[in-house]
């Protein structure tokens, strides 16, 4: 099983996790910029964090053969702090980096007017920098937050096929499916979504435009829940090809829209693993 985790906060994970993930089949990941648990109070601590997402973390991942990409943004929670607002001014520099494959995580936390402004401004940045957008949905008042998210995405003029709306559940999935946006699911040990509930959603809604991630961070979470979801899919009768589609081809398709995703040599390795040398020029 080859796994692309489209949402995982490796900054908060240990090197042992990289080792376990590599052994479990994780070969590529996207690390979205988000809240670090401790509120930040200046632009400088954001730029140091962004530097790590385009510098140190990709290096650490590469030690285990894992390809690291990231998304960059001012997250919704800290968008409410006037001391952090100036982060918007430094984003254009980072949105030009090779490893940056989307603007994110953006969206709503408490649905304040400040969050409205920062969300809209960053969707505009996604259009300007020709990048997809990665949108977080709020943990409180989620259903109405998801509706409002879809409305703001529609108003922004960005192609909904270039937007993933994340942390969905049984209540919010249908409206995102109708919107044309991609549907993200964060598999957690016992909160947002579990492997068995994920399988039921896939059975009902199909595999189109679905991204399954571990969203592992500094809270109770598990970077191997992508693998566990793949195993649960197989146990429920999905094929190996279905699992490959959800855990590899779908994230490659979504983030590939950035034209900066670089998994070509990983695909090459896989082709030889499967005994198919076509990608190596028939040699």
């Amino acid at each position: 099983m080859r796994i692309f985790d489209p949402h995982i906060h490796m900054t908060s994970r240990t090197t042992d996790d990289y080792e376990r993930m590599a052994a479990a089949g994780v070969r590529a990941l996207v690390e979205p910029a988000f809240w670090l648990g401790q509120p930040r109070t200046s632009v400088g601590s954001f730029t140091d964090y962004f530097d790590s997402l385009v510098g140190w973390e990709p290096f650490r991942a590469s030690q285990f053969g894992i390809r690291h990409h990231c998304t960059i943004a001012l997250n919704p929670k800290e968008a409410n702090d006037p001391r952090c607002r100036e982060v918007l001014q430094v984003l254009p520099r980072y949105l030009e980096k090779d490893g940056v494959v989307a603007v994110g995580e953006i969206g709503y936390d408490s649905m304040t007017p400040e969050e409205d402004e920062v969300f809209a401004a960053q969707l505009a940045l996604a259009v300007e920098h020709d990048l997809p957008a990665m949108v977080h949905t709020p943990h409180r008042d989620k259903a109405r937050g998801t509706d409002r998210t879809i409305a703001v995405v529609r108003e922004s003029g960005i192609d909904p096929g270039r937007v993933v709306v994340d942390h969905l559940n049984e209540v919010t999935v249908a409206r995102v499916a109708e919107s044309g946006c991609w549907m993200g699911f964060s598999i957690y040990p016992d909160t947002k979504m579990t492997p068995s509930r994920m399988v039921a959603i896939l059975q009902e809604h199909g595999l189109d435009r679905v991204l399954v991630n571990s969203a592992a961070d500094w809270g109770r979470s598990d970077p191997l829940l992508t693998l566990r979801t793949g195993e649960a899919m197989l146990a429920a009768g999905f094929t190996d090809d279905d699992v490959d589609r959800v855990l590899w081809r779908n994230p490659v398709e979504f983030y590939g829209q950035s034209k900066r995703l670089d998994v070509s040599d990983l695909l090459d390795v896989d082709a030889t693993f499967e005994g198919n040398s076509i990608l190596r020029g028939g040699s």
Partner: peptide
């Protein structure tokens, strides 16, 4: 200062 590892 703002370069990724390859740019640095």
């Amino acid at each position: 200062r703002y370069g990724d590892a390859a740019e640095k």
